[in-house]
Each structure stands twice: as structure tokens, then as C-alpha cells.
Design a protein around this nucleic acid. Structure first.
Lengths: 100, 100
DNA sequence: TTGACAAATCGAACTTTATCGATTTATAAT
DNA sequence: ATTATAAATCGATAAAGTTCGATTTGTCAA
């Protein structure tokens, strides 16, 4: 994914908010039975709830962030869990420092 | 300036292009009589010309980047010279690496 | 003090993004 | 198979961004 799409994905308050929440999932989301918030991620329903927006919007925003490569998805059963791609984020910071 | 506006300012191909050109002004812009491209910056006319867009658009884009804090302006006579704010850019990279 | 030129701003047309409700798809349980 | 629930996608409308041409403002030279 190119940097333009990464920056576009970051040009939205709600998407930045999601990224921030996912930095410390345990602090922002209740536990899900049998899944490790940190290792697996947070499901769309939980993010939808905190976002105070519709499920549709939450899903799209997560998709946008994923297409930008900033978060990763894992589907388990009916749920899709999203977590940050810390390496990608670090690389973006590095890129900005050295090449932007 | 907040990070949202910074990311918005970077969400545009032409603005990213300007930022890239300003990394090495001597490589991308002809000399201006009596002004140091690196120390002072590049004037709007020169950027307009390379952008292949109108003066109006170039001026707005430079203003956008300036408001985001990524470039700085110096007016000398009739000309306004723009140069990158390297420190701000570095700080942005750092911010992304450590806090995004 | 008028003319010329650089830059900034304004107003408008067009494109893209934001956000919703409704529908569809995927999965699991009955 | 049918139902229930999570997530994704679709279609629509409102808001924001893009980009232009025209105008205005700032600055210098004649």
C-alpha cells in the first residue's frame, strides 16, 4: 500500500481513535470469552459500541485501516478481530523521519 | 497544530510532491538571483511552474502545508519563499513511532 | 502615484469522503 | 434446513476536499 492511502486512512478522527484504543485493548474493551485481546485483537461489535457509530461505519473504517496496512484482521467463528500492525506503524514513523 | 490536520495535509499527491521537491531544492528548481534555495526556500512561482497547476492552487497547497506546520514561509520583497520544517517532520515521525 | 508582478483570497463546479439504514454473506447453534 | 448473530457490502445523502478562473492585496520600480 502506498503512503498516500496510509495518510488518507489517518485523516479521520474516528479512525485515529480506533488506532489509539487498539494500543491498549484491555484498557478500552471488556474481555471476550476465550480470546486474548492483545494477541488476537478486538472484534467489530466492541469497536462499534465504543465508536458510537453504526456497525456499517465501524466495519468500513476497520477495512480502510486494514487496506492501509495499519491493522490486521483475524476471523474466528462469527467474529473478526482486529489488532494493530505495530511493525507497519513503526515503519511508517521511520519512513517519515528519513524519507518524507 | 494537531495531528489530524497534519495527516490531512499529507493526503494529497500534489502536496506530497511539493514536500519531496523541497527536500532537495537545488535538484528540482532553477536558481533565483541572490537567494539561497536551501536556506531561504523556493518561491511560489517556481513551485507553480513545476506543479503544472494554477498559481491559485499552488498557493493554497503551500498554505495548507504551512498551517500543518510542515513548511515555513519567508517573504522577501514580492516573493514568498517556502522551505521544509525539518524538525517538525522529524517530530512527526517520532510521534508516529512512539505514540500513534 | 501608477503600473507591473507575486502571492493570497474568493466563489463556484466537480470529486471524494463520511455516514447512515438496508441488505447480503458467513458462521454457528438448534 | 432454519434461525440467529457478526460482519461486510450496497445505495443514498450530506459534508469536505480539489481545482480552477477572477479578483484583491502587497511590494517594488518608474
Amino acid at each position: 500500500m502506498d503512503k498516500l492511502n496510509i495518510f488518507k486512512s489517518l485523516s479521520n478522527e474516528a479512525r485515529l481513535q480506533i488506532l489509539e484504543w487498539l494500543k491498549d485493548p484491555a484498557a478500552h474493551f471488556g474481555p471476550q470469552d476465550g480470546i486474548d485481546l492483545i494477541e488476537v485483537g478486538v472484534c467489530v461489535s466492541q469497536i462499534t459500541e465504543k465508536l458510537n457509530m453504526t456497525q456499517s461505519t465501524a466495519s468500513q473504517y476497520l477495512s480502510t485501516l486494514q487496506k492501509a496496512g495499519l491493522i490486521k484482521a483475524t476471523r474466528i467463528g462469527k467474529w473478526t478481530y482486529y489488532k494493530r500492525d505495530e511493525e507497519a506503524i513503526k515503519n511508517l514513523g521511520l519512513y517519515i523521519q528519513t524519507d518524507l
